[in-house]
Nucleic acid binder design. Structure first.
Length: 831
DNA sequence: GGCTCCCGGGG
DNA sequence: GTGTACGGGAGCC
């Protein structure tokens, strides 16, 4: 018997000799790749029989056929469980193979003696991980022996896997890559038609064995191109053909042996593109450590998976998990790298790449540099986010691959599924399709917002309830399992939900409230340790407390999320209802204590001190806290010398909160302004940016008005060049498939009539020209009109003004102020 | 006002 | 693979 210690990274299973064998791909403690095999885990699910019916024998004797295979139940166990607040007898039903479970479910669901079938859709590997407490990225010890298997890494067969030390850190080997493709201007990206031109690789962690004493490791940099040109870039390597380029791609991954392969939008672009090119040349992309091929799953969410190697699409992680913590509203590599790394993409016109490629222009250096830089930025982002990813992995016990592709609701659900067995809970099922449609249609009453009066304020203090919804859920025992319990009927206090009498159990703490309070207190403990520490070694703890917070904050949304297993509309309603109660309560009390309340929203209030002092405000919050239940707490968020509120009511969709504040140390904080979308003209984008700059930095409102007026005036007098009024919209399907004919569809039809090949993906650029017709009939190709033919009024009223209108409403200017002729011109008459 | 469509990321 | 899932804004009808 041998013993090895290893960190699981990617876990899968295979049926070998009619037995499911778990494969745990990972790294040994001394940094070697390994695959640990375990074949002692049996698939199972739960059956909840109707009260009074004994179906154990029926189950044991049951048999069905699928093709030629006989499917039966290998054994059953009667277990005492809790299911949505009730104690029940359930039957744990074991089968031979995971794939037998859906077959049995379909058969059993027709049995009259069965109340419900549960946990029949929990993937085998996840079930194994939950039941055996496997947490990726933490150290385990396995006992067994090395055996021969058809794998690229040594295989170790074990009967026993146990946690070793949880705190040792593994440093995964990350390799980043990026491709550039041949994409002539105007056309869509077409993997079937157009080749990959180059592939860049970048990595910084160099294998221990390659390190030389005293020499600092150089990053691994490569750009492979399949046409020759003169270059001095030492990382550029030429190959003879695109097919050879793809072979190189395989070779680098094979020799570098990354634990994590990362890219930016590589789920949706790079890997599917490489796959479709490889298919064309009949090249097998057998990158998996078990020699399996790269799996590209099409559909609404394209994913690309390699067995044994974690494919991390860092874009997906950033958009799903980090979006809320970033200022940027755009998640392209340039915007994200600018904010997170303070670095930019190289400024290169990619249309020229295809031209250069066609004409075999002397040097392609700048494109190679651009390509490598993109790979480098993705690497840096992945490296920077590793602590966060690692903590989410450790808290949820999901692999990096899975965490990467989940949103908050799924993370909450998997966290609950992981906790459920420890609390002896059987998980509720996912909703049926009909149920899903019903749930989707419902909207619940949200938070209370006390709208601020637009304008300028001084000496402001902000208070907020720390983790308001999570603490409400915990303190008021809100969950589907405690909702309207029979044990407290008529005795428990009603939740403040309007027009409904609902209550939550006051005798027994529910599953979800217990879990959420655990998350909150764990976070509080860590925060206490991290407090005021700036040392590097506290970064991990900081990432951990942040993850705990994000997770706890997602529970409310989860309870009201239509696809949730523990969905409970009443619980979600009660949470916001209590939220409204508490925020209104603190507003009243602030007013009664002599503060002026200027703004309140969900969990925070803003007051002005006027004659009172900061100390008075702090004393006030202390008094509030004495009366709050459980873990609820009102915090002093900060003091702000001044700020501007922007009128929020523009759209009918819930009031957005828009304001700008200046903190005591002069930092400007802007909240709530949406980005300008791609399908708006450049002139609208530019104007909004400039207005922000003038108002916030130069504090010169009049100058901002004048600036917009000048733009409006320039538009009226056609001084704005044509390229700033072009709107670009992509075709999503074939022209014939369109029912609604938007402007871009009309323009595309004209192109088609002229014999130009337009189809899905074609970016249709158009300019709205003058006239009284509807917009699509006035939309023309930029090429077919003259500089001055665009419709100034359209660009003023539908593009530029909407982008700045809200800002100016605050400053007391109407739309007319911005659009009427420039003041100077009017005044000129007086002098 | 509802319905339908587009967008994102990537070259 | 014991499947697995967007969400918000704009313009037509």
């Amino acid at each position: 018997m041998d013993k090895i210690r290893f960190y699981p990274l990617d876990i899968t299973y295979k049926v070998i000799n009619n037995k499911p064998v778990i494969h745990l791909f990972g790294k040994t403690a001394d940094n070697k790749q390994v695959c640990v095999l375990y074949d002692d885990f049996e698939p199972y699910f739960y059956v909840i029989p109707k009260k009074g019916s004994d179906i154990n024998n029926d189950l044991k004797n049951f048999e069905t056929k699928r093709n030629d295979e006989t499917i039966s139940i290998t054994k059953t166990e009667t277990v005492k469980k809790r299911y949505l607040g009730n104690e029940i007898d359930a039957i744990k039903v074991f089968v031979k193979l995971p794939s037998h479970i859906p077959v049995l479910r379909e058969e059993l669901k027709n049995w009259n003696s069965i109340e419900s079938i549960n946990e029949n859709d929990i993937l085998f590997v996840r079930r194994f991980m939950i039941d055996n407490n496997i947490v990726p990225l933490t150290l385990y010890e396995a006992e067994g022996e090395f055996i021969t298997q058809k794998l690229k890494v040594p295989a170790f067969k074990t009967k026993k896997i146990e946690p070793f030390e949880s705190d040792t850190a593994i440093k995964p080997r990350i390799l980043s890559f990026d491709i550039e493709t041949y994409t002539p201007g105007y056309r869509e990206i077409e993997p079937e038609k157009n080749p990959i031109i180059m592939i860049a690789f970048y990595a910084e962690d160099v294998a221990e064995e390659n390190l030389q004493p005293g020499v600092s490791p150089k990053p691994f940099k490569k750009v492979f191109v399949w046409k020759r040109f003169k270059t001095n870039l030492d990382y550029v390597e030429f190959v003879e053909s695109e097919a050879e380029l793809i072979e190189k791609f395989k070779e680098v991954i094979g020799t570098y042996k990354p634990d994590i392969l990362t890219g930016y939008f590589s789920d949706g672009f790079d890997l599917p593109y490489i796959k479709s090119r490889a298919d064309k040349y009949k090249i097998k992309l057998d990158l998996g450590l078990d020699f399996s091929e790269l799996k590209v799953k099409k559909g609404i969410n394209v994913t690309a998976q390699i067995t044994g190697i974690t494919h991390l699409d860092i874009f997906k992680f950033i958009r799903k998990i980090m979006a809320g913590t970033l200022d940027t509203n755009q998640y392209n590599l340039n915007a994200v790298a600018s904010e997170m790394l303070d670095e930019k993409k190289h400024d290169v016109d990619l249309d020229e790449l295809s031209e250069a490629w066609d004409k075999e222009v002397e040097s392609m250096d700048k494109f190679c540099e651009y390509n490598l830089n993109d790979a480098r930025l993705s690497y840096k982002l992945a490296a920077k986010l590793m602590p966060t990813i690692r903590e989410i992995v450790k808290i949820t016990s999901l692999t990096i691959y899975d965490v990467n592709r989940m949103g908050f609701s799924q993370l909450v659900e998997w966290y609950l599924l992981k906790q459920a067995p420890q609390f002896n809970q059987i998980a509720p099922n996912k909703p049926s399709n009909d149920e899903l449609i019903k749930r989707r249609a419902i909207r619940i009453k949200g938070a209370f917002v006390f709208e601020p009066k637009a304008g300028l304020y001084n000496n402001m203090v902000i208070f907020d309830y720390r983790s308001l919804y999570p603490t409400i859920i915990g303190s008021h025992n809100i969950s589907p399992g405690t909702l309207n319990c029979s044990c407290c009927e008529g005795e428990a206090k009603s939740a403040p939900v309007e027009n409904e009498n609902i209550w939550f159990c006051e005798k027994r703490k529910g599953f979800i409230p217990t879990i959420i309070e655990d998350l909150i207190t764990r976070r509080m403990r860590i925060k206490e340790i991290v407090k005021d520490q700036t040392d590097e070694k506290f970064a991990i703890l900081d990432a951990r407390q942040n993850t705990l917070k994000l997770l706890a904050n997602s529970f409310y949304g989860y309870l009201g999320f239509y696809a949730a297993r523990w969905y409970s509309l009443n619980s979600a309603e009660a949470t916001t209802a209590y939220g409204r109660h508490y925020i209104k309560d603190v507003m009243n009390k602030a007013q009664n204590s002599g503060f002026r309340v200027i703004y309140g929203d969900t969990d925070s209030i803003m007051i002005t001190l006027d004659e009172k002092t900061k100390e008075d405000a702090i004393k006030f919050s202390e008094k509030i806290n004495q009366e709050l239940p459980g873990l609820m707490e009102l915090e002093f968020d900060g003091f702000y010398p001044s700020g501007i509120f922007v009128s929020a009511k523009m759209s009918d969709f819930g009031a957005k909160k828009r304001y700008a504040l200046i903190s005591e140390n002069g930092v400007i904080i802007i909240k709530g302004f949406e980005s300008v979308r791609r399908n708006t003209s450049l002139i609208a984008k530019e104007t909004q940016e400039k207005v922000f700059e003038i108002i916030l930095k130069e504090k010169d409102n009049e100058k901002a008005v004048q600036y917009v007026k000048r733009v409006v005036d320039d538009l009226r007098n056609k001084r704005v060049p044509l390229d700033k009024v072009i709107i670009s919209i992509q075709l999503q399907k074939e022209l014939s498939e369109y029912d609604a004919r938007g402007p871009h569809v009309a323009v595309a039809q004209k192109l088609k009539n002229r014999g130009i090949n337009v189809g899905p993906g074609s970016a249709i650029r158009f300019v709205v020209t003058m006239g009284n017709d509807i917009i699509r009939n006035r939309s023309k190709l930029p090429e077919e009109i003259k500089e001055h033919e665009y419709d100034s009024d359209y660009y003023i009223n539908n593009q530029v003004i909407p982008s700045v209108e809200r800002i100016f409403n605050v400053l007391g200017h109407t739309k007319q102020d911005l659009t009427e002729a420039k003041e100077q011109t009017k005044l000129e008459g007086f002098f």
